[in-house]
Design a protein around this nucleic acid. Structure first.
Lengths: 217, 217
DNA sequence: ACCGTCTTTACCGAACCCGAACACACACCG
DNA sequence: CGGTGTGTGTTCGGGTTCGGTAAAGACGGT
């Protein structure tokens, strides 16, 4: 999000060249709603924006529990501004004039970290007798391949991304289905049962009563 | 890791003041082995170091699958250096002269992201022989895992969130059960007893007669 | 229209919570 | 030093909530 067209185009150019999809907004309010709607992997925010300052956008996202990576890109080069920006929950703070290459490198660094380290989302994961390959979208249990539907696979992949971590039904609905946290449905339970049935005795999904589900660490 | 004593002391001072434990090395080789041995939550590296350049330390850590957050702190203020540093797998790159406050803010930002979400909200907590992991919802007493029900876990987690702090029954009812402060029930006592029984001799919950409960500080 | 998949609904069994009752520990006081 | 009362530990069964499961409706693609 950026209100100066020249800079915006520059940022877009370099990010696009490096393989990122870029969505651009020039107004603060529009940017906030876009961030909520599109769920981008990261936001680059100017602080001085018409409509709503970038700091406020960041603050509201964090307030709503949205931890999308945020990088401030701004002309305000003051120690206090930097510290305040970072304390707001931003991941990086780049001041103009800036090097487009450096910005891209910083975006990559933030994404690398936000992806959760080396488990580069595409590396196969193994938990007990179950292996899951996100790139091939294949699953095997005790060596034999298992055929999962798309939703079932996404659900298992989400759980196996962080073995041991307990996910609430709301988190799973949000993460796998993209729903706003809305309880009162048994959809998750039914799909968990389905996955368990297909995995057979190698059922690595454990129920945490009153909380949600997790795979054994 | 830093070879100029003045700067090293400054960094140590500010980080310590913000509650971080700091270990200092002046030599590259020593720094690498210290990083491997001590497994710190983050490394602040100078690039120009005697023994082994900081970039090399970062590269070797990453090569070994170690994704400890790395922040470069260096006098080399060149776009190319910055980009290379970040591409090596560093999380941030701060150039001298730098603001100690900003450095601390950047360390926090990196840790926040590396912890995966809200700052330390679900990092494991340890009190005496008892460890509690909010994300995994697991508890161990003297090394052996303990199976708690949801309410029992929430109760213990609430108490362990602030070791030493005494919580009244009303506070616990409100915080764990969500009830409006409504005395006259023994619910809390029963659950405390249950948790104590499951923790065995490692019972860290102490009764404050006439007041409430707390875990040993 | 058929088929696979996702979602909702309903029912059942099991786990859990809670409150009451009783036993026990501590502090105060004579 | 023992009695007494208040506060706490512990046990236990009823009632409720929660999750597993099966089945049927809804949806979309071919």
């Amino acid at each position: 999000m950026e209100d100066e067209p020249a800079i915006a185009d520059l940022v877009r150019l370099y990010l696009t060249r490096d393989g990122f999809g870029v969505h651009l907004e020039r107004d603060g309010e529009a940017g906030l709603s876009a961030a909520r709607r599109l769920r981008p992997v990261a936001c680059v925010l100017d602080i001085a924006l018409p409509g709503l300052p970038g700091t406020e956008i960041c603050r509201r996202l964090r307030e709503a529990g949205d931890w999308t990576p945020v990088i401030f890109l701004t002309a305000r080069d003051d120690e206090v501004d930097r510290v305040v920006g970072l304390e707001l929950g931003a991941d990086d703070y780049v001041t103009k004039p800036f090097s487009p290459r450096e910005l891209v490198a910083r975006v990559r660094a933030v994404l690398r970290r936000s992806a959760g380290g080396p488990e580069g989302a595409d590396r196969p994961r193994v938990v007990g007798p179950v292996t899951l390959d996100p790139a091939r979208r294949t699953v095997t249990a005790a060596g034999t391949p298992v055929q999962l539907t798309s939703t079932e696979f996404d659900l298992l992949a989400h759980l196996m991304a962080r073995p041991g971590r307990v996910f609430s039904r709301e988190e799973l609905l949000a993460g796998v289905w993209g729903y706003a946290a809305h309880a009162g449905t048994r959809t998750v339970d039914v799909h968990v049962a389905q996955v368990r049935a297909k995995l057979g005795p190698a059922s690595v999904i454990r129920t945490h009563r009153g909380v949600g589900y997790a795979v054994d660490a």
